[in-house]
Write a protein that binds this DNA or RNA. Structure first.
Lengths: 242, 242
DNA sequence: CTCCATCAATCATCTAGAGGAGTGAATGGA
DNA sequence: TCCATTCACTCCTCTAGATGATTGATGGAG
């Protein structure tokens, strides 16, 4: 797949080798990779060079170091998702709100040109479409339309809806063996059309934020395309510029 | 101001020292700091430790390294601003659109509770309020309301409006000697009220994005609080999650 | 059983170098 | 004048260690 370029510095080549091993799931997410001393002796370089390579991987978010324990393959940080910028209404002070999800539709469909482009598939490829709401205490937090390539996610069509659960990514892993590695998100806002208003839980014409998410596996292929609509009033995003 | 903590590792202390010198404008933005070898001999540490300290500063965006030339004090990257996510309508293909700004109001006012909180000033402190539009070929791109502490920005009240120019931050520097170091931005969306619709160039009730920006100087004090409204249809933001 | 000291494994910090590679200015010949 | 070479300066890569800090497991004392 990815050939290591001899002209690169050693720490870069080492980074590529380790990254390839992670991609090949040689070490599962949450588990440690070999210790720095081990990697140094395996690859015949100094520990400093191994540290440099791992520094790069840490910067890229592929691994995390824990002092005294080891270096761990990291799961992607979905707590940084734009979806986390949707304020959850606090019903009772102190009570932890419970997020429920309700799947309203599940169907096998052919990829439209738009879906095909997003999922990087030929038009007409078999796909799965899920329509889902996220709820907090019976109130709609957001509405979601999800597209998945059927080839990878066929089990989702046949299992009981209840067994999918409220979080999709664990289900991807449990039922279909698909691990999420990265995601790209984009954000726009619009006045919601009648066709989406009910799903998002707002009145037609109200302002909503539209969050698109494309998740990719460790092989960099698209796994899921999702379009989310939520009331604009609930959305608040912050960032720092330096 | 900031006391260097002896318990911290050397590279961290060194980072703090260098950062303090940058904050004190000992080296101007765009200029080099002393070479790694020099810093090592000045502070009596190994070059590796200096490199580590500078690695941290690079990660924080305070400096940039250029191979063979030196390490430079960096200006903040405002090309990452959310304001850059506003699509500029392309009127003629190939033609580079010209951004014009028009100051509609300029006044000296007392800080309201909200303004005071944002600028971290006592309520009632003298401030300057600017109301401004950004235009592309006579079309409104966004509307802005800007608050500045009068103590730092008094010259802006008396100069000719034309001499402020289209970009605010160069004017801050040129006319008031104020350098922008960092900014915090936040984003929400709403249906625009009648009081802001004209400024933002949209009809009342249309969806707009609201971008708040607080800029700070190298002394970490707030310099400017700005609230921007722009048509939601023009806004598009992307990010990657790893 | 609980608490605490010990210990091995692991990452973190730091040193002191050698040699490589990119940059820009000075130099000198065509 | 123009261009290639040289050279000093800078950051970059890499080595081979020593020592410190953190963690989790183990085993003994109370």
């Amino acid at each position: 797949m990815s050939i290591v370029d001899d002209r690169l510095p050693r720490y870069q080549r080492l980074r590529d080798l380790i990254a390839a091993d992670i991609a090949a799931q040689r070490w599962a997410p949450g588990q440690t990779i070999p210790s720095e001393a081990e990697l140094a002796s395996i690859h015949g370089v100094a520990v400093g060079t191994v540290r440099h390579a791992i520094d790069v991987l840490v910067g890229e978010g592929l691994v995390t170091r824990v002092h005294g324990r080891g270096t761990f393959v990291r799961r992607p940080a979905f707590d940084q998702s734009l979806l986390r910028c949707l304020r959850i209404p606090e019903l009772e002070p102190g009570a932890k709100p419970v997020l429920i999800s309700r799947i309203l539709e599940r169907a096998s469909l052919k990829a439209s040109p738009e879906v095909a482009e997003r999922l990087e598939l030929p038009v007409g490829t078999d796909c799965i479409r899920l329509v889902r709401q996220k709820l907090v205490e019976r109130r709609v937090l957001r509405g979601e339309e999800i597209w998945l390539p059927k080839a990878r996610f066929a089990p989702l069509l046949t299992v009981e809806l209840a067994s999918i659960g409220h979080d999709l990514y664990p289900a991807f892993e449990r039922l279909c063996g698909q691990l999420v590695a990265t995601a790209e998100e984009s954000l726009t806002a619009e006045a919601i059309g009648a066709e989406h208003a009910t799903l998002a839980g707002v009145a037609t014409g109200q302002p909503v934020v539209v969050i698109d998410r494309l998740t990719r596996g460790y092989d960099r292929q698209p796994l899921e395309w999702r379009r989310v609509r939520a009331p604009a009033s609930a959305f608040h995003f912050r960032r720092e510029i330096r």
